[in-house]
Design a protein around this nucleic acid. Structure first.
Ligand code: FES
Ligand code: FES
Lengths: 148, 148
DNA sequence: CGATACCTGAGTAAAACACTCAACAACAGC
DNA sequence: GCTGTTGTTGAGTGTTTTACTCAGGTATCG
């Protein structure tokens, strides 16, 4: 039932990029260090994100990665689905071509369908910009409590 | 992100037991056949369910399994948690003893916490009795459309 | 007693996960 | 146009989890 690290790491990386948007490309080594992601693994995630059209990469010295579109235009749902594939909690909810029929022997899928729909709606309503905003808010509070 | 078969199978089995409640013990071979669960695997699930106090088993000829309490007193959440352990979609949501701290580098946990809470609430609100009811309803409709 | 069930724990094949490695391609600046 | 720095790709690997199976054991009924 756990989200794999791919999704978690990928979103972390995207938050990092969004936070440094407009400051030119960010290197993967920077991201890996700040967000505690194995660098060689991050490579693959960035490749996936680039293929999905979320980031733009530039090679050569002073190259790196940056968002391909504004952070407010990227929502968590599309991001996670690009990284993880379907988020359905049960195989029978997203029927592969030429399937069905398990409904009659199980009878719990309607509950999960509801939960799944709610979840997708909630994720779709959260943009990357909001996540960054939340993080900044959190940082401010941390600084304040540190100063006391 | 998928629920494992354990949860699915376990709930199927419980629905089966609930459906035949009051008719004496049901054998695991019966359940396995009706619900399409490998019989030797079902053994373990029933043991787990028994240890968690959901079913009562009787040995010997004409033995079998039956619900240990009324179907309306069993909700999906407790059932699934007994079978699967925690349903949290992220490790950091249910902190093991002596952990924390990932929040600062990730910043998406608040979204997932919300989704997780909603999910648990929804699951807790569904009783085994309701699932059986739904299944019966579904069967009636199937019979009707078959007769037309 | 013996047939019929449930009960238990150990073992295992296969898949998914979480990476790593090595070779390659592009670009910037000298 | 070389050189070094960065991204790009695909193949490969150790570990863990999943989804079971098997071989015994134990309780109960008739
Ligand atoms: S088979 Fe889909 S919920 Fe059980
Ligand atoms: S570490 Fe918990 S959501 Fe990323």
């Amino acid at each position: 039932m756990l989200l794999s690290t791919k999704g978690d790491y990928g979103v972390r990386a995207m938050i990092d990029l969004a936070k440094h948007a407009g400051e030119g490309p960010v290197q993967r080594s920077e991201i890996a260090r700040r967000r505690q992601i194995p660098e060689s693994y991050l490579d693959h995630l960035l490749a996936q994100l680039r293929r999905a059209g979320f980031v733009r990469s530039t090679r050569g010295p002073s190259g790196g990665h940056e968002l391909a579109k504004p952070a407010s235009d990227i929502n968590l749902l599309s991001l996670l689905e690009a990284l993880e594939g379907s988020l359905a909690p049960l195989g029978c909810l997203e029927p592969a071509v030429g399937e069905e029929a398990t409904e009659s022997i199980c009878g719990q899928n309607w509950v999960w369908q509801e939960i799944y729909d709610e979840m997708r709606a909630r994720l779709a309503a959260v943009s990357l910009a909001e996540l960054v905003e939340h993080e900044r808010e959190h940082e401010r509070q941390a600084v304040i409590s540190y100063n006391i």
